[in-house]
Computed example of a mutant assay.
Amino acid sequence: MNKINLFLALLFCTILYSCDDSTDTMSVEFSQIEMLKNYSDNLIVPAFKAYSESAIELETATESFLADANDETLSNVRGKLNDTYQKWSKVNAFQYGDALSMNLLVNTNSFPTKFSEIESKIAAGDFNLGSISSFNVKGLPALDYLLNSGSTLDLFTTDANQANRRQYLKTVVEAVKNDADAIYNSWTSGYATEFAANEGIDPSSSISYIVNEYNKAYERCKNQRVGYALGKNSISGNSSPMSVESYYSQETLSLLKSNVESLRSIFNGGDGIGLADYLKAYYTAGAVEEDLSEKINNQFDVILAQLDKCSDSFSDHIEAKDETVETLYTEMSKLVVMIKSEMPSVLSVKITYQDSDGD
């Protein structure tokens, strides 16, 4: 009986080992370290550097506008704001490291902004942006409202609350710039090296961070920039054109394209090794039957082609809930399954967050 039990135990261990071995990521020849170093050195750090520099230029342009508010200085600061928005779209998917402890995402780009609360704070001379309830009255969306809505020059030169409005603008810009500086300094002060060396597939690994935050960023594209405004998650199903990103400047479509293009570039590792190559390694080795890398890139092609059919202002598409934007949302939804279910399954990376939209 003891021999039988011993035999069964050994048989069980052999089967268990065989099962584990079949999902061993090391069976596919691929350098995680090389991929992580590419992300860190060639994508993430340069993107945060560009974002930080644009925020500094935005602050300088704001100071010039406040010193002499006229059509020229207003046009200049609006241009710098749009450039900062564009640069933000390139770092949107890199919300790990100190970005989490800093609440960088919600501090920088919580939209739609609550313009009525902004006006109340201006009227009250309340420039405190540090409370947990202040996410929707600061950051880039608040600047979009302050600089692109209504009679901006009059509000900053002749309005009764012009002094408070000036101080509020200055405070919001300074906070954006300081956060941009802090996150760039964090990456260049050691975190880039730590990130590049943190291989593996557990939830605390860099690859897990990349895959999870990549999915979050893509779902923000699909949901916040398109779906929520279309009323996809509301009981009434009514559209909300003012809920789109950068509503007041009407740069919504440009920013949406920039976000999607950035996410495609991140997937492909820019000019280096990325998630697409990691997936391709599994396909080439025969570990999976489908070339998921090609499948995902083909779907990005479809989405970008549909975006090219959209026109400014994007909020008009939203208000009409026309076929162009409905098809865009449908095509964007198809990609979620590929990157959130199929890709993590191939790479043995666990999705560690939950959303509420059912995808």
Rank of each mutant, 00 (worst) to 15 (best):
N5I: 15
L6D: 10
L8S: 11
S18L: 14
T23A: 05
T25A: 07
V28W: 03
Y39G: 01
Y39L: 02
N42L: 02
S52H: 00
S54N: 13
L58C: 12
L58N: 08
A61C: 14
S64T: 10
N70T: 05
R78S: 09
L81I: 05
N82Q: 09
F94G: 12
S101T: 15
M102P: 03
V106Q: 08
T108V: 00
K114D: 15
E117L: 15
S120D: 10
F127K: 10
S133K: 05
S134C: 08
F135V: 11
V137P: 06
K138M: 13
L143G: 05
L143N: 06
Y145M: 02
G150E: 06
L155M: 11
F156V: 12
N164E: 06
K170H: 11
A180R: 07
Y184F: 09
S186T: 14
Y191A: 03
A192Y: 03
T193R: 02
G200L: 13
D202C: 00
S205T: 09
Y209P: 01
N212E: 01
Y214M: 04
Y218M: 00
N223R: 01
R225T: 05
G227C: 04
G227V: 00
A229Q: 03
E245L: 15
S246W: 01
Y248K: 00
Q250E: 10
E251M: 13
E251W: 01
T252Y: 06
T252Q: 03
S254C: 05
L255D: 03
K257F: 00
K257N: 12
V260M: 00
E261P: 06
S262F: 11
R264A: 09
F267T: 06
N268H: 13
N268F: 08
G269M: 00
G270L: 12
D271Y: 08
D271M: 08
G272S: 07
T284D: 14
T284F: 07
G286T: 04
A287P: 10
L292E: 02
S293F: 04
S293C: 10
K295H: 12
I296A: 04
N297D: 03
I303V: 14
L304E: 03
D316S: 10
I318W: 02
A320V: 09
D322N: 05
E323Y: 10
T324Y: 01
T324S: 07
L328F: 03
M332C: 06
S333I: 01
E342Y: 12
L347I: 11
L347R: 05
V349F: 09
V349E: 01
K350C: 03
I351H: 07
G358I: 04
D359S: 08
